[in-house]
């Protein structure tokens, strides 16, 4: 059987992953180095990459902070009744089940220009939908469970006894967190950060709906790829896609590294 399964596995990987990856690489180069450089040096491409970068930074920071705190509360808090904790725990996964397009739609429905809240904010000069804040919110929604899902199992596994030991030795929660809890969860957090970054870079559906995909304003790297394909400008699409794919592969390597460190500690 072994003789059958291994080649079969290899061929699936080859067809499904390796060949497509190679195809993007050659596709971006089909017009030579110049084609690739031109595709990337278009002002809209540069702007789109900048947008993606900004969103990624903002979302990763917010998601990490809240993710760490929320996991601490969901695992440790005594002020939350057990039943409520379980409920929150299942609600937590909902963004995974929601199609990104629907996630974007939700934000348009709640904060769009036609809603009371959106109009109110518009009057004060803040626009959420079709602007940067809305794109951040949409990406936050989509990436919300990632950090929490990485940290919660680690917290559960290390248990409370080390933290209790710290408290009997006179340490308060802030000191205990940094000295005792943080070293235990840090590789989980790093792993969560890598996952969040990957998802931020790749987010498409939700951002497309919320941003309106306005060139040089709210267009991100992925929505630019989409637009280029729609405009039959496949080489240009390939250029940006290659950059995204390269970053993804880099992140994948980081993930592997973080996973290994996580297991050691």
């Amino acid at each position: 059987m072994k003789k059958l399964w291994i080649p079969l596995t290899y061929s699936i990987f080859l067809i499904l992953i390796i060949v497509p990856l190679a195809r993007i690489l050659t596709g971006a180069w089909s017009d030579g180095w110049n084609g690739f450089a031109n595709a990337l040096s278009r002002p809209e491409a540069l702007h789109a990459l900048l947008m993606t970068g900004l969103i990624t930074i903002v979302v990763t920071i917010i998601n990490t902070l809240f993710g760490v705190m929320l996991s601490l509360y969901l695992v440790r808090a005594e002020w939350l009744p057990e039943k409520l904790k379980q409920l929150l725990n299942s609600v937590l996964d909902l963004p995974f089940a929601v199609s990104p397009v629907i996630g974007g739609l939700m934000i348009v429905l709640l904060l769009g220009p036609n809603t009371a809240l959106g109009a109110l904010l518009n009057d004060v000069g803040i626009s959420i939908v079709y602007a940067f804040p809305g794109m951040v919110i949409a990406t936050l929604f989509v990436t919300f469970p990632m950090m929490v899902r990485e940290i919660m199992p680690v917290l559960q596994e290390i248990g409370t006894s080390q933290e209790e030991a710290a408290s009997t030795l006179g340490a308060y929660s802030w000191y205990t967190f940094w000295q005792v809890t943080w070293p235990a969860i840090r590789w989980g957090v790093i792993y969560g950060v890598v996952l969040t970054v990957a998802r931020c870079l790749g987010e498409f559906g939700a951002v497309l709906v919320v941003s309106g995909n306005i060139i040089n304003k709210t267009q991100t790297a992925t929505t630019l790829v989409y637009q280029d394909v729609e405009n039959f400008n496949v080489t240009a699409a390939n250029g940006v896609a290659l950059v995204l794919a390269a970053v993804s592969v880099g992140l994948l390597l980081l993930m592997e590294w973080a996973k290994k460190r996580k297991e050691v500690h």
Partner: peptide
Amino acid sequence: FAGRRLLNSLVDLPFALPTAVGGLMILLL
């Protein structure tokens, strides 16, 4: 077998890769 670890890492690629890029790959291929 040779390359097992590499394949094991590659499994996650579709999660790491932007879905739009995934779509483009299929389109090209």
